[in-house]
Design a protein around this nucleic acid. Structure first.
Lengths: 143, 143
DNA sequence: TTTTAAAGGTTGACACTATCAACTATATTG
DNA sequence: CAATATAGTTGATAGTGTCAACCTTTAAAA
C-alpha cells in the first residue's frame, strides 16, 4: 500500500522501533520493561528529576510513572532523595548499579539508532527534527 | 530537556498523535478502539484484504488482528467473504454502515493531520517521508 | 492569619495493546 | 501420498495507559 498518511507513517515507525528495542531488551534479560529503560535515561539526563518531571516530559499519567518508578526502586536501580523545597516530592537518582545498566543499554540503543539512521544524510536528519518538533508543537496546541 | 534522540522523538510524537486521536474517538462515542479504526482504513483502501494482509502491513501478531476483526464483525461494520483461492482465509469488506463510519472518521483524522502539519512546508514533508521510509527499511533489515 | 484550592504522589480499577503457544483445517512441498 | 508450512483462532499473560479517589503538603485567596 503506497501513499500512507503522516499519521500512519508515525505509527508504523514507532511500532517498528518499539519491537526492535523490545527484542534487544529481552536479549539482555535484565527484568526491565521498555518504559523503565526510558525513565532511567530521563533520570540520568535530568537533575534534579521528579516523578512529575518525567510524567510531564513523557506526557503520561502520574499513576503510570509512579508504578514504573516503584519497579525501579524495588530493583535497586534508582533511589529517592527528599526534595528540600517540597515535602510531597522526591528527587530520583540512579544508583551505581542503575547507572551501569543505563550506560550499557544506552550504548545498545545508540547502536540501534545508528543502524536505523544509516544512509540518511545529516541535513535530512536536521530537517526531520525540525519537522517533528513542529508537529509536536502543533499537537500540543490542539490539546 | 533539549537534544533528544531520534528514537525518543519518534516515541513522543507517536504518543502525542495517539492521545490526540483517542480523544477525538472518545468524543464520537462509536464503541470503537483506535486499532479498529486503523483496520477499517486498511480494509477500505485495500481490496481484497485478509487478516494476514493487515497483520503484515501493521507488523502485528495474527492473534491481535483476529480479535480486532471479531469486534468489527460483531458491530456489523465489516463482513467476511470466502477467499475462492484459499478456504482457510477470508476477504474482509466494510459494510455500508462501516463505510459510512470510515468516511466520517477519515475526515476527522484528516483534519487532525492537517492541523498537525500546519506551518510545515511541502518540501519538508517530502523529506520527512523519504527519511521515515528509509528508517523503516533499515529497521526491517535489522530484524 | 485562616480558609480554601491546588498539587505531588499513591493506590484501585479497568481498558487497550501486544505477543507467544497450541490448535485445526487447508495448502504446499517433497 | 506423507510431511511440512500456513491462515486464522483461542487461551494465557504481560506491558501500557488512563481515570478516580485519596492523603499530605503547598500555594493562593479571603
Amino acid at each position: 500500500m503506497t501513499d500512507i498518511s503522516a499519521i500512519e507513517t508515525i505509527r508504523l515507525l514507532a511500532h517498528a522501533v518499539k519491537k526492535r528495542l523490545a527484542l534487544q531488551l529481552e536479549v539482555e534479560a535484565l527484568g526491565l520493561v521498555p518504559m523503565q529503560v526510558r525513565l532511567m535515561k530521563i533520570i540520568h539526563r535530568r537533575s534534579p528529576c521528579t516523578a512529575l518531571d518525567i510524567a510531564s516530559f513523557m506526557q503520561r499519567d502520574k499513576a503510570q510513572i509512579t508504578r514504573l518508578i516503584s519497579g525501579l526502586l524495588e530493583q535497586g536501580l534508582i533511589e529517592k532523595h527528599p526534595n528540600p523545597k517540597d515535602k510531597r516530592s522526591h528527587f530520583l537518582l540512579l544508583t551505581p548499579e542503575g547507572d551501569r545498566i543505563q550506560e550499557s543499554l544506552s550504548k545498545l540503543i545508540g547502536q540501534a539508532e545508528q543502524s536505523m539512521l544509516e544512509g540518511i544524510a545529516k541535513k535530512d536528519m536536521q530537517s526531520f527534527f525540525t519537522v517533528t518538533q513542529k508537529m509536536l508543537k502543533n499537537l500540543e496546541k490542539d490539546q
